[in-house]
Design a protein around this nucleic acid. Structure first.
Length: 464
DNA sequence: AAACAGTGCGCG
DNA sequence: AAAGCGCGCACTGTTT
């Protein structure tokens, strides 16, 4: 990090100061719950592993490795499945070993792998999270994760000891297991999360000034993810569902914005049909519906070969072409121009006051300014709240963490509404005034856990 | 024993 | 133009 502007320097300097206060505040942890849960999960893992012996894969594994057999060795498992038992190889790693991630194991039609994946999920929760948190928690029952600003190439932040920015949430069972350990610091307080809605898309619109993207953001009657759901799965407005919207958002729109290509998107959208339980309103299956539309099977999804006709892959190739060629063509042009300018100069500037020098790939050059500046919106607001507003208002409520586009706070019950109002004023009104390059409306969403209850129990909260 | 590369997986 | 971006952490297997 050389060549910063004065504004950029000041943001990081004050950011470090504000985050050190957040680190000092810390988060209350239910240590007894952690201890008990580690024990009960260990018993569950033991019981599940006892059933392994019934399976052929386990017997073959034992036969091949004997004393050296290790259930935690994916390399051994890969050799047993793909070499010994000769299941079809799903993929290879960078160093030409058998790929044994979740997708590769799911491709194997054997009951053992389902049990194995379930146990591995529990072990991840126990090891990285329950034990990881228990190891770092202080004798007073508070956790003080570090937040770093000076080591991240994109100009976002990171967190460690433990990493507070990757606590499970997507898998509801695992989320409950881990998040029940996080509590407010007193029975009359709430854990609260305030997040910027769609901030990366909004910042992308500020850089690219794409009129279509701006319209989607400014006109609340439009919905980009809904439109893309209809297009990807060939649905009419009446056939469209919220699950198809979610699938399109996470499997097409965001990946495309970050530079993924249609082959990978097609594969994920196809997988998403089962993952999101997508069916037609009349009960017919989504795959049958797509076949009727002329897309009969997934296709090879190999970037080296062009897609075969009547495949879903072919369809998504056309959707992608429309996405960048028609729908967001100004965004596409911006990416080209931005990349060309970088190649000529050797650096690029962010809207938040940084000049980024060095050797970067195309996707990095077009993604970093957007990811970095989106986080800087959060950082600016956090600084203003921690170093100024919360003090001036004499609040007992404090900020205890930060997750890229959201703030986690420990809030006194009596201060709940004024605290949220203040956050909204800083994160929306004050920020927009301070940074005139923000040419779209910002918004924040609130989640609040009941008084004295854990982080797992947070719920959407309407401020009025 | 410590360090390293590789793999996998949790989050935004 | 390249074939999504970033981060931290646990674990294996190998080397120092």
């Amino acid at each position: 990090m050389k060549s910063l502007t004065k504004d950029g320097y000041r943001l990081l300097h004050e950011g470090v100061q504000a985050l050190s206060i957040v680190e000092g505040n810390g988060i209350k942890v239910d240590v007894d719950y952690l201890k008990q849960t580690i024990v009960s999960i260990s018993e569950k893992i033991k019981a599940l592993e006892a059933d392994y012996k019934e399976h052929d894969v386990f017997r073959q594994w034992k036969k091949r490795y004997g004393e050296k057999m290790k259930l935690s060795s994916r390399e051994q498992l890969g050799n047993v499945l793909f070499k010994v038992m000769e299941y079809p190889v799903y993929a290879y790693t960078d160093t030409n070993r058998y790929s044994t991630d979740e997708a590769a194991l799911n491709s194997v039609d054997d009951p053992f792998v389902n049990a194995y994946l379930e146990v591995e999920r529990l072990k991840k929760a126990r090891g990285t999270y329950l034990r990881g948190i228990a190891r770092e928690v202080g004798p007073d029952g508070f956790l003080h994760p570090s937040f770093n600003l000076h080591t991240i190439v994109t100009y976002r932040s990171s967190s460690d000891r433990p990493n507070f920015q990757n606590i499970p949430i997507r898998n509801p069972q695992i989320a409950e297991l881990v998040r029940r350990a996080f509590l407010p610091r007193a029975a009359n307080r709430h854990l609260v999360e305030i997040d910027y809605g769609g901030v990366e898309v909004k910042v992308a619109a500020c850089y690219t000034e794409d009129p279509q993207l701006l319209k989607y953001i400014k006109d609340p009657t439009t919905d980009m993810h809904r439109d893309m759901g209809m297009q990807c799965y060939c649905l009419s407005p009446k056939q469209m569902t919220s699950s198809a919207r979610k699938a399109a958002k996470s499997k097409f729109v965001f990946p495309e914005f970050y530079g993924n290509i249609y082959t990978a998107c097609a594969k994920d959208l196809w997988k998403g049909i089962d993952e999101f339980g997508l069916v037609m309103p009349d009960g017919t299956s989504m795959k049958k519906h797509l076949a009727k539309k002329g897309w009969k099977k997934l296709g090879a999804c190999d970037p080296k070969h062009s897609p075969r006709p009547h495949t879903f892959e072919k369809h998504i190739q056309l959707v992608e072409k429309d996405f960048w060629g028609k729908r967001f063509k100004v965004y596409a042009q911006w990416k080209q121009d931005w990349w060309q300018a970088y190649k000529k100069k050797g650096w690029f500037d962010t809207l938040t006051g940084f000049r980024i020098h060095g050797l970067y790939k195309h996707n990095e050059v077009v993604n970093y300014p957007i990811q970095g500046s989106a986080f800087h919106c959060l950082l600016w607001s956090l600084i203003r709240l921690v170093k100024k507003e919360l003090r001036n208002h004499g609040f007992k409520s404090i900020i205890v963490g930060q997750i890229h586009d959201s703030i986690v706070a420990d809030v006194h019950h009596k201060e709940l509404k004024p605290f949220l109002r203040l956050c909204q004023e800083v994160m929306v009104d004050q920020l927009t005034k301070a940074w005139p390059w923000i040419i779209v409306p910002m918004e924040v969403d609130f989640e609040v856990a009941p008084e004295g209850k854990s982080w797992f129990e947070k719920e959407t909260y309407e401020l009025n």
